[in-house]
């Protein structure tokens, strides 16, 4: 505890570093994944290729990816850009599937009635399909946000500063409080992002708010055997 109080400035600085590294991937992956997911759903072939590619990309371990990226895009090994790009790629890999699934989840009747009312393909996507797949997208983005915040820490082992630096530094200097402070701060940041997304969901999708708790349907009570 004394370590924490003595190093509040350091923790705050690393938290800001962490936000700078984790926000761009979360935002960029969404912007890229929506059109990509739409395209994946559009054609049979594109679906197979894009979703398989996303699945494989998601299977690539994060640390090796951060090591490989400089060789592919020509950045320096210690550049924070590698971490941001790697995490954006994971976000896309996850969200493309979520977007495709979310669009799939829109009721076919709703889609057809929208067309029957005279929506064009373009306006139908923006005004009907995308909003209605909102809850699925939100669930996906919550996973992306939490895992991105968590994965940013990995960059610390190659020297990209974030809350993860508290782990490497605490480990090398044997300061347990520093590691615990890093853990608490990372989890708190993840929960903050998560909460912000939930809040955004409530504001943007008022129709999903529960009015009253759902009543249990037909009771299927079973006597103890």
């Amino acid at each position: 505890m004394t370590w924490v109080l003595a190093n509040l400035g350091l923790i705050w600085a690393r938290t800001l570093d962490h936000v700078v590294l984790s926000l761009p991937p979360i935002v960029i992956c969404f912007v890229i994944a929506v059109p990509l997911g739409w395209f994946a759903r559009r054609y049979r072939v594109s679906r197979g290729i894009i979703l398989t590619g996303a699945g494989l990309l998601y299977a690539v371990p994060s640390l090796p990816l951060i090591f490989v990226l400089p060789a592919v895009i020509g950045t320096s090994l210690l550049s924070p850009v590698n971490v941001i790009i790697a995490l954006t790629l994971y976000g896309i890999a996850l969200m493309v599937r979520v977007v495709a699934d979310g669009l799939d989840s829109v009721d076919a009747d709703v889609r057809q009635s929208a067309s029957a009312m005279g929506y064009s393909t373009w306006s139908r996507f923006w005004q009907v399909e995308l909003p209605l797949s909102g809850p699925v997208l939100l669930a996906g983005m919550r996973v992306v946000a939490v895992s991105t915040v968590s994965l940013v820490t990995v960059g610390a082992v190659i020297g990209v500063q974030s809350l993860g630096s508290l782990f490497t530094d605490g480990f090398q200097r044997g300061i347990q409080a520093e590691i615990i402070a890093g853990l608490v701060a990372t989890v708190a940041l993840a929960l903050l992002f998560d909460g912000a997304l939930v809040l955004a969901g409530r504001v943007l999708m008022p129709w999903t708010r529960r009015v009253a708790p759902p009543k249990p349907s037909v009771p299927l009570e079973v006597s103890a055997a």
């Binding site: 820490t153 990995v154 082992v157 809350l163 993860g164 480990f171 590691i179 853990l183 990372t186 989890v187």
Partner: peptide, 19 residues
Amino acid sequence: SGGLRAIPTLGLLTLVALW
């Protein structure tokens, strides 16, 4: 499960290693 996903692996790893 949700909470555990938020815990960074590196933090857990270094903490247990210290212990």
